[in-house]
Amino acid sequence: MKRKRSDRLDWKRVPVRKYYQEEVRDGNHPGIVHYFYMKEIKTPLMDAFFSQPTPVADQGFLYIQYFPFGEQHTVTTMFSDSGEIVQQYIDIVHSHGQDPDGVPWYLDLYLDIVMLPTGEYRLVDEDELQEAWQQKMVTSEQVKMAYDEAKRLIKNLSSRQKDWITWAKTCYKTWEKVESRLLSHQIEV
């Protein structure tokens, strides 16, 4: 499995970024919410999962990544520099938590679901999951766990997506309130 952190320090394409996180204990969305703002970017990123390539990382973009307590997935809502949702990316994970410095991490099970705001979605990276299994980086049980979680999410995707979009827009308003008070973090590239 790949261990990933939500501050994306390994992402050299974003030399200047801001991030913020909060724990949410409301009844509908308990978990950790991590905000990752791309203040400067060296190389924009496009996803080609659908008929039209989708810009997913560029200057001024904001990722709001939700780590729901007790679940085996994270949901990243990607906002453009104009505040429009460009896509949502669901990472199927073995587990997630927080490092001693408070930054959320997750053990990625490779399998992902990508959704457009229109509701169109794709199950992606099955090849990465199979390759990880062949290289004994994940077990057969973990492969089954990944597919079971993906099937469970896809079954109710249309109703979940509406809820996630509504909630992500609320989180975006939180970001607008705290962003000006945050320092930019610059990484070496």
Rank of each mutant, 00 (worst) to 15 (best):
M1K: 09
M1N: 02
M1Y: 05
K2G: 03
K2L: 09
R3C: 06
S6C: 13
D7E: 09
D7S: 08
D7A: 06
K12L: 14
K12P: 03
K12W: 04
R17G: 00
R17F: 00
R17N: 00
Y19K: 00
Y20W: 12
Q21E: 03
E22N: 02
E23K: 11
G27T: 14
G27C: 11
N28L: 15
N28I: 11
N28C: 14
P30E: 03
G31N: 04
I32Y: 07
I32D: 09
V33D: 00
V33A: 15
H34K: 06
H34E: 06
Y35I: 00
Y37M: 00
M38V: 06
M38N: 07
E40P: 01
K42F: 12
L45T: 06
A48N: 14
Q52Y: 09
P53W: 08
T54R: 08
T54K: 07
V56E: 03
A57N: 15
D58C: 04
I64D: 00
Q65G: 03
Y66F: 14
F67H: 05
F67P: 04
F69N: 13
E71G: 05
H73D: 04
T74D: 01
V75F: 07
T76V: 04
M78Q: 05
F79E: 05
S80I: 08
G83M: 05
E84P: 11
I85W: 02
I85L: 10
Q87V: 01
Q87E: 04
Y89C: 03
I90L: 15
D91P: 06
I92F: 07
H94M: 07
H94A: 12
D99F: 10
D101A: 11
D101Y: 03
V103F: 06
V103L: 10
W105D: 01
Y106G: 09
L107W: 11
L109A: 05
L109P: 05
I113H: 02
I113A: 01
I113R: 01
V114E: 14
L116H: 07
P117C: 08
P117Y: 04
T118C: 12
E120G: 02
Y121R: 08
L123T: 01
V124P: 02
E126F: 03
E126L: 13
E128A: 12
L129M: 13
Q130F: 02
Q134N: 10
M137E: 09
V138L: 08
T139F: 13
S140F: 10
S140R: 13
S140C: 10
E141S: 13
E141F: 02
V143R: 05
V143A: 06
K144T: 14
A146Q: 09
A146G: 10
Y147P: 02
E149Y: 05
A150H: 03
I154K: 15
K155R: 14
N156H: 11
R160F: 11
Q161E: 15
K162N: 14
K162M: 09
W164D: 14
I165S: 01
T166R: 12
W167I: 04
W167Q: 12
A168S: 13
K169H: 12
K169T: 13
T170A: 11
K173M: 04
K173T: 10
T174R: 15
T174N: 13
E176P: 02
K177M: 15
V178W: 00
E179R: 15
S180M: 09
S180L: 12
R181P: 05
L182Y: 00
S184L: 02
H185R: 12
H185W: 12
H185N: 04
Q186T: 05
Q186C: 04
I187W: 06
V189C: 14
